[in-house]
């Protein structure tokens, strides 16, 4: 069995999968409520919470899977990118567990973890494919040729991530934090053509969402509180349409450029209903595996070159890939 541990942002997660990629347990303890009062993730608050939760979550994952550590052959942990203080909690716990049992340890890249959410049973996706990774922290187009190894980055956001654009827009519209999912829900009752929000056209296959957020801010400012309330669904629908259109256009453009026949979508934004509908030809990660989780980390560990004892004892976390 493979034990996965993920603590890169504000979800403390652990999962157990089989060597052939079946999920036996997938425990995610979200801190979203904790961070809502700050309107965003506070790194020190997140790190403190990870320490409280990391071992109970691992124990729960083992219990839910009906296995014990005796059944585990490999530990996979997110080593980066993410909040460094948060990552270090998971890495320290994973190293200690692996060392105590003399197990190999896979240092998993969080982004490759998202891609690996597609390799889990019951319906795994076989490379090659073009992958749109869109989450609260990242937005990129990846040329995935094989299950192991780093995919080539074809394009990435120059400013805000798509999920960040959703959450910031949701905030401007008065939804709670994180508001992306609520915005998606309210947008279903709105007119997506009510407002023409600009989609930034940057060269190549990159994305830019910061201008869109500003356009929404100006649109909201022009309205009285009462009008804003009345037109909230239209604003949400139009704003969502602009983000989704940018993602879809770029993805199709990239697919054409590299001659990809298959497209896949992963990350928290892959849970967005309009994106899933607009990219109907694409394979989207299962809803439960879109937001951060440890099953995807265990899945990535399955296709990685694990570090054997004692090579990982000094393993460090990294905040960014660059």
């Amino acid at each position: 069995m493979i034990l996965g541990i993920e603590t890169s942002c504000d979800e403390t997660a652990a999962a157990v999968i089989t060597p052939d990629g079946r999920i036996l347990s997938n425990v995610v303890s979200s801190q979203a409520d904790l961070h809502a009062r700050y309107g965003g993730v506070v790194p020190e608050v997140a790190s403190r919470r990870h320490l409280e939760l990391v071992t109970p979550v691992v124990q729960e994952a083992l219990r839910d899977s009906g296995t014990t550590l005796d059944d585990v052959d490999l530990v996979g942990v997110t080593a980066g990118p993410g909040l460094i203080g948060a990552l270090l909690v998971g890495v320290a716990a994973a190293k200690a567990i692996a060392w105590a049992r003399r197990l190999p340890l896979a240092a998993v890249d969080h982004l490759q973890g998202h891609v690996a959410s597609l390799y889990l049973e019951p319906d795994p996706v076989e490379p090659p494919f073009l992958c749109l990774l869109a989450s609260g922290g990242h937005t990129m187009l990846l040329d995935v040729q094989e299950r192991n190894g780093k995919p080539r980055v074809l394009g990435a956001t120059l400013d805000d991530a798509a999920g960040e654009a959703f959450d910031k827009g949701a905030r401007l519209l008065g939804f709670g934090y994180p508001g992306g999912a609520e915005l998606d829900h309210v947008a279903r009752n709105g007119d997506p053509s009510a407002y023409a929000f600009p989609v930034a056209r940057v060269p190549g296959l990159d994305f830019s969402f910061s201008g869109l957020k500003t356009a929404l801010l100006y649109a909201v400012r022009k309205l009285t509180a009462e009008e804003g309330e009345r037109r909230r669904a239209d604003l949400a629908a139009s704003y969502q349409r602009a983000i989704v259109r940018a993602l879809v256009e770029r993805t199709r453009q990239a697919a054409e450029q590299i001659g990809a026949t298959r497209i896949a979508v992963v990350g928290g934004v892959a849970a967005n209903s309009e994106l899933r509908a607009a990219l109907a030809e694409a394979r989207a990660a299962p809803l439960a595996l879109c937001t951060d989780n440890a099953a995807m980390i265990a899945s990535a560990a399955r296709f990685s070159n694990p570090i054997h004892y004692p090579g990982y004892l000094g393993l460090d976390a990294y905040a960014s890939t660059a």
Binding site: L51, Q59, V89, A92, A93, A96, I97, A100
Partner: peptide, 11 residues
């Protein structure tokens, strides 16, 4: 330190 101790204790 505490995450290491908790991981060791668990295992």
């Amino acid at each position: 330190g505490l995450a290491t101790a908790r991981g060791l204790a668990l295992a």
